[in-house]
Design a protein around this nucleic acid. Structure first.
Length: 517
RNA sequence: GGGCUUGUAGCUUAGUCGGUAGAGCGACAGACUCUUAAUCUGUAGGUCAGGGGUUCGAGUCCCUUCAGGCCCGCCA
């Protein structure tokens, strides 16, 4: 929308966090002819670079002048001298600013107009102070960016979670741990790409806006394309498109996908989240388990330097190979109940006493199995554990088990009680796929909003022939949580979904979507 | 959806039994040429998240709205 032009700029709009004193300094600097936002500054060194190169300097400043830049984090005013802590992405260094070392008039500008939070460029020479702190003796400085908002307190910093999430930039400015978390996240992403491309996988991008959503059981976000005049869904998974690529002849593919699910938010769920999905022709679910194990353990070693991670007080050991067991065995040995020894009615009773949700409605032991698993086992799986062989009913895209009737060749990986990965031998029999979709459609008719949509084009793709294929999806956000010992997904997503703040004027109420047909 | 819980100055926070809202940092004015959470002196800064109620009197007690956090449900 075209902005309503306001003839008088208003800095006291409650939505603005500008500081009056800083605005005054800005004006003062402008009157003195200081350029507030110059276009560039040439650095000869980063701060870490200075620290490394001049590590052996003594009390006498090095003859070599360097140019570096950064944000002023702390100012210590001594009258005719200043000590400042200057920080860039690489680190921090102390500046020593003397009135008699700067060009004429510069000291007054610094004293009256430059403050904590501002970004400056400096030219200076490295030396060590009396107490041995490596410091830059400043010969000249240039204001590079005047900050109008003041930084949080220098010692306690910013701890308010809501503010840290809503104003992540501020969190990143002042909290090194937060910067480190997102550095790790970035390293994990590049490690994933390197690892997979080194194995000859090709990375692709498939549609985020989909006319038919699929690949998972979840409620989608709905949108509308004006030109096409049709409803579109934000993808809940890229699965069905990636498998089309395997049909097309790409034998090893992956996508680093942002998925969208219109569901609740909690410490392990964000409405938009990241997942890597991987498909490999001529592989089965066991191959994908091995691949998953190699990729994740490799990432943990790369980002932590070892295979052990402390998480929620537990030491998690990622050293391969990881434990694996069929779901019925997990329920038996970890859950402590061998459900197949109970008659069905007795099993339902037993389930009720154990607090197994939804057990009353089951029609078979097989249907009861995942319910018992979720209640009795899932949260106890702290060490990396593959759970194998799921009942067929809830896995409409997985191939039937080669030995166990009524089951599919599927695994899920659990770590710290969280589901980290989910993979299977992909269903490639078009007739079976058609029947599974029809079963899902029936569920939808009975009101299951999360049952999958029928996708005839996908069935046709399988009709042209997809080789035997293994696939897996790995949750990136949760992997970052484990790698950085964070127990909230909001700590590892830069800009997590938050309810909008109501301090600003009410916007037009958005309709709750047309996702109920 | 349910339970518990938090919201006080820019930030970090104290506030007892209901009795004039305190501090540190930051800001402002001043002193100080090796400090490092610099130090010292002084000043300003508050719709106690919003609204309502009880009371002579509410940051404090009650109701309600908003936003956040934790747990449960849901998300297989």
């Amino acid at each position: 929308m075209i902005g309503r032009s306001t003839s008088i700029m208003s800095y006291d709009n409650p939505a603005l966090q500008f500081d009056e004193q800083r605005l005054a300094k800005r004006n003062l600097l402008q009157e003195q002819g200081v350029t507030l936002y110059p276009p560039s500054f040439h650095r000869s060194h980063t701060i870490a670079g200075i620290r490394t190169e001049f590590d052996s300097v003594t009390h006498d400043p090095s003859p070599q002048q360097v140019a570096t830049a950064g944000r002023i984090y702390i100012v210590r005013d001594h009258g005719k001298t200043f000590f400042c802590d200057l920080g860039d992405e690489s680190g921090r260094i102390q500046l020593y600013i003397r009135k008699d070392s700067l060009p004429d008039g510069k000291f007054a500008i610094f004293k009256s107009g430059v403050e904590r939070g501002d970004i400056i460029g400096v030219k200076g020479r490295a030396f060590r102070t009396k107490v041995g702190e490596i410091t830059l003796w400043v010969d000249d400085f240039e204001l590079l960016t005047k900050a109008l908002c003041s930084l949080p307190e220098k010692f306690h910093g910013l701890t308010n979670l809501e503010k840290r999430y809503r104003q992540r930039y501020l969190d990143l400015i002042v909290n090194e741990e937060s910067r480190e978390t997102f550095r790790t996240r970035s390293r994990i992403l590049s490690q994933l790409r390197n690892n997979l491309t080194a194995r000859d996988f090709l990375e692709f991008e498939t549609p985020t806006l989909q006319p038919i959503y699929g690949g998972a059981n979840a409620r989608p976000f709905t949108t509308y394309h004006n030109y096409l005049e049709q409803k579109l869904y934000m993808r809940i998974a890229p699965e069905l498109y990636l498998k089309r690529l395997v049909v097309g002849g790409f034998e090893k593919v992956f996508e680093l996908a942002k998925n969208f699910r219109n569901e609740d938010i909690d410490t392990s769920h964000n409405p938009e989240f990241s997942m890597v999905e991987i498909y490999q022709a001529y592989a089965d679910y066991k191959d994908m388990m091995r691949l998953t194990e190699e990729i994740i353990s490799g990432i943990i070693r790369e980002v932590t330097g070892g295979y052990e991670v402390t998480y929620e007080g537990n030491t998690i050991d990622f050293t391969p190979p990881w434990n694996s067991m069929p779901m019925e065995e997990a329920v038996k040995t970890i859950g402590g109940i061998d459900i197949f020894t109970y008659p069905l009615e007795a099993l339902k009773e037993k389930g009720k006493t154990l607090g197994v949700e939804g057990v009353e409605g089951v029609r078979s032991h097989r249907e009861a199995l995942p319910l018992f698993f979720e209640t009795l086992v899932e949260e106890k799986l702290i060490q990396p554990t593959f759970i194998l062989d799921f009942p067929i009913e809830n896995s409409p895209l997985a191939k039937v088990h080669r030995e166990k009737e009524g089951f599919v060749e599927r695994f899920e990986l659990f770590i710290a009680g969280m589901e980290l990965a989910n993979g299977f031998s992909e269903l490639n029999d078009p007739i079976d796929q058609l029947e599974r979709f029809e079963a899902q459609e029936e569920k939808r008719r009975l009101g299951d909003e999360e049952a999958q949509m029928h996708d005839y084009d996908f069935v046709n793709a399988l009709g042209y022939g997809m080789p035997p294929t293994g696939g897996v999806g790995i949750g990136i956000d949760r992997l970052v949580m484990l790698s950085t010992s964070n127990t909230s997904i909001k700590e590892v997503i830069l800009f997590p979904s938050m309810r909008r703040e109501s301090t600003t004027e009410e916007e037009e109420e958005v309709a709750p979507g047309e996702d109920n047909q």
